[in-house]
Design a protein around this nucleic acid. Structure first.
Lengths: 354, 354
DNA sequence: TTGAAAGCGCTAACAC
DNA sequence: GTGTTAGCGCTTTCAA
């Protein structure tokens, strides 16, 4: 590859002048500039980013670690971040933790060697500890929060989303609602569970721990959890399911189909996170939608904002709203007993969230 | 960040010795080695990859450009490649061309500056030209081929896949089959179209250009193309659709639903590329499945193999098989006229492909 | 077995 | 406006 020396030589100038002509054109005489530019063009010169970064101690690079690139939600986060970085002249190094803290640790180590100027991470349970390795690096946590005090966070209103989903089911008349929830060491799972619980409490529906089944965010977990919930004995068996993430919803729907239950006639389902799949399955799925692309974009914008600061600014915390999208996977519960009142809002208080 | 100088100083050795202790442990006395390793641990030392790469003129980095990271097929390719690279101690720089040659060009330029030791690319129409900029870089083309003579290629049997899909429809009795095909400057689209045509010819079914509608690989294109095909006047209107990629299949199915047609009673559909979505939509979609993860993995293995070579080896061309997965989106055509013969193989030759 | 020194390609002080 | 020079952090001769 042609180096700046080659360019300088061809243009009959020093490397310093060549460098200036390329990166600070106004510091060099027009004639010289043209000669250098011409030489660069001729040689197909492309600056060696390694050398430049080494010298300037600035890589114009940011690290991004998502938890599961095969999950379209995460792929969308990544695209939002990458598009934004691109606009600002930054390059993204994308890694995948596969939801494994150990893989995340390795990704962070690899990343460190490449000297990113900042890091965006969708945390796993190990993130808080891993981040303590790099106290001076600006960090934005995306979608989930690790509890690391210095991190800026970009999240959605998980509590509100889960609350809205649950309330929707309650208003349809469901009183026995199951939840399939993520691991409780992940913030989003905790928050969604909390929104679920709060909505039940507000409606005066007693909560039953047997109706809340945890899973590890993957399709299989949703499948297993749904089977578990739907094999409960009759009075306890839920007439509706709220599933805490998109992948587990897939598994749950497959389990429901396998059991021969009709949606929503026999069982209502609400998923968290919208997707292609949710829209095209039949019946189309009622979901809590999240602005995935915007989350990724914002994470990057905020990170790049942080890079401008001389002193580390206090971390900001952005929370975007979620939206209940009612499609056709939810309806009144089957075979209502006389004292329930299908098609009507439930009795008792049902305040809107502020 | 701690540098090797810090480590050397703390261990009371020269930087040369510190460097050796870390990367060639057997070249250094056991005692010294331990001191250095201890110092490195203490300081949380992480080698500066930039400096190392600059010095060694070897980045242990490979570039990967996929055409659409939001397309699960491409995300899977990326994961296959990245996992494989990881195993070999290489780091992947992942870029996204968004099917735009211009974005691909920019990705390649950015990549060049980072001195990747090789490049894996899912080509766009501009790739062949762009690759001429980097004659000395080992390149593997993935899924599609650009025609660049030096590239190793990892593809699937698109002709055979399309042939099998078409033959399947013919055997069900369809005689009027529409195809939604990708842009003809993309190799996969050309090959799939060819497989389609050949199968029709072999069955003695006249091909009708009005039944082959091109699209630009995205959902919208599939939607529009399906509308166009299904609004043809009665005798020409297809009773089955073969759609040439996964995203366009989504659009086509949505269009079909919008028109109130039942699948497969009113219209059969076969898609190219399997997916979560294809398996869970209802009815589950008959597809030509491709080994996406394996494609990505192989691309990386082959590239890394290339890096070992002193002299550029002649490019190899790997083609993996596709598989017809029959689900429930295909069936006999509706309302057969007497001279067709639903449920039976078509008359005339219908040889199996070798 | 270890250290001194050069140099990868680039940019930024500093001189002129 | 341009050239000279030093040095980013690392590895690798070469010498001891």
């Amino acid at each position: 590859m042609a180096s700046i020396q080659d360019v300088a030589h061809l243009a009959h100038v020093s490397t310093a002048t060549a460098s200036r002509a390329l990166s600070r054109p106004d510091m060099v005489a027009p004639g010289t500039r043209e000669r250098v530019l011409q030489a660069a063009r001729e040689l197909g010169y492309q600056p060696n980013v390694l050398a430049r970064s080494l010298r300037q101690r600035e890589t114009r690079t940011i690290g991004l670690i998502v938890a599961d690139i095969l999950n379209p939600f995460h792929a969308t986060l990544a695209k939002g971040a990458q598009d934004s970085a691109d606009q600002h002249g930054y390059t993204v190094f994308l890694f995948n933790s596969d939801e494994e803290p150990e893989k995340e640790r390795r990704a962070i180590d690899t990343l460190r060697g490449h000297l990113p100027q900042g890091l965006i991470v969708v945390p796993t349970s190990g993130t808080r500890e891993h981040l303590s390795t790099l106290p001076e690096l600006p960090v934005v946590e995306l979608d989930r929060v690790s509890g690391n005090p210095g991190s800026t966070t970009i999240t959605v209103d998980n509590v509100g989303g889960a609350h809205a989903a649950t309330r929707h089911l309650l208003e349809l008349g469901h009183r026995c609602i199951g939840m399939i929830v993520g691991q409780q060491d992940i913030s989003t799972a905790v928050e969604r569970r909390q929104g679920f619980r709060t909505a039940l409490e507000e409606a005066g529906v007693p909560s039953d721990d047997a109706l809340v089944v945890p899973g590890n965010h993957r399709e299989d977990d949703g499948y297993r959890a749904a089977h578990q919930l739907l094999s409960l004995p009759a009075p306890q068996r839920p007439s509706a399911l709220f599933v805490g993430n998109n992948e587990m919803t897939v598994g749950a729907v497959l389990a429901v189909r396998e059991l021969g239950l009709r949606i929503p006639a026999d069982l209502s389902i609400v998923g968290f996170d919208d997707s292609r799949w949710a829209q095209t399955m039949s019946p189309p799925l009622t979901v809590i939608a999240q602005p995935a692309y915007e989350l990724g974009r914002l994470a990057c914008e905020h990170l790049i904002g942080l890079l401008g600061q001389a002193r580390p600014a206090p971390p900001t915390h952005v929370q975007l709203p979620t939206e209940l999208v009612i499609r056709h996977s939810t309806g009144p519960p089957p075979d209502p007993s006389p004292d329930r009142r299908p098609h009507r809002p439930p009795p008792g208080p049902s305040p809107l969230r502020p």
